[in-house]
Design a protein around this nucleic acid. Sequence first.
DNA 1: TGCCAGGCGGGGT
DNA 2: ACCCCGCATGGC
Length: 324
Amino acid sequence: MLKLVAGLDLSREAAAKGVDLFKTLCVYNFGFWFNGREARVVLDLELPAVALVSVDGAARIYAPPGSDAPELEERLLFSLGLRESLESFYAMAAADPLLSAFAREWRGWRLRSCDPWWALVTAVCQQNASFRQGWGMLAKLIALYGRMVELEDRGWVPLPPTPRDVLAEPGKLRMAGLGYRSETVLRVAEAMESGTLPSGALAAEPVERAEAILRRVKGVGSYTARLALALALRRYELPPIDRWVKALAAKAYGIEEKAVEAEWRKRWGNWSALAVIALTVALDAAPLSKAIARLESGRLLPEPGAGGPAELWRLPLGWFAKPF
DNA sequence: TGCCAGGCGGGGT
DNA sequence: ACCCCGCATGGC
């Protein structure tokens, strides 16, 4: 049972930074964490600690009694992107053939970050899979491991499994549909548990060095490492370029696919990874052929009913379950 | 049914 | 420095 350890109002901070909390909370979120009005934000998987955040800015932090409340408040602000200024990112995006509409309509969006372990699991689940398949895997993992915590006055919140949970019951990875990705997740869990992947130390490293450390785990390549660095540490310098981004950027920028990475870094600089993630939101993470069609017809904003990252939370509970 | 999807590593050249 | 293949699973 977690106790209320802090209550705060984020509305002033959000307004000052131009942050739209609805957009920030809805993107890449599940229905069991966000209902359109308020979100449950996991602040610490191990403690655990959870924040309840309303789209109007009211926030409550729940944690074991005696937890460091100011530290958790800071973590909440970090994870909502309220410590980050995206002025220069949106200025670049406004002049970009892929993201100009997004910069106009979605300027208040911030990436929500999570902890390095779950960011790596998330990234591994996107390998060689559609957006739907990857996020289905994550939802199934959370359901199968069944970790829950109770907030003293607000009911139960599902939590992702910890590395220890996964090591204790490795069979559930395949049950969740991860297939050959299961071995990679197990190696990540082992690295986390044995301290080979010091998640604290990662943040202090230069980003290329952090990528190299992550890539020491077999099954974690450049895409996975870079996506995880963006999702967990808000390190955006290195773009996670996959064949989806490669094809879209080649078309939009009028270059060859082999030139995409260099061009992307030249255009986006220290915002490279954020621009990739924003593009997946803008195009509803549609499969490549549909995404190309969207680009050709100039439909570069999330569309109602497309079921993309911005609408993941709207999908009915159990959407990911296999019919039997 | 068969083929592909927001990668990856191991094998070839 | 490339190119190419198989990999486990789900969706169409």
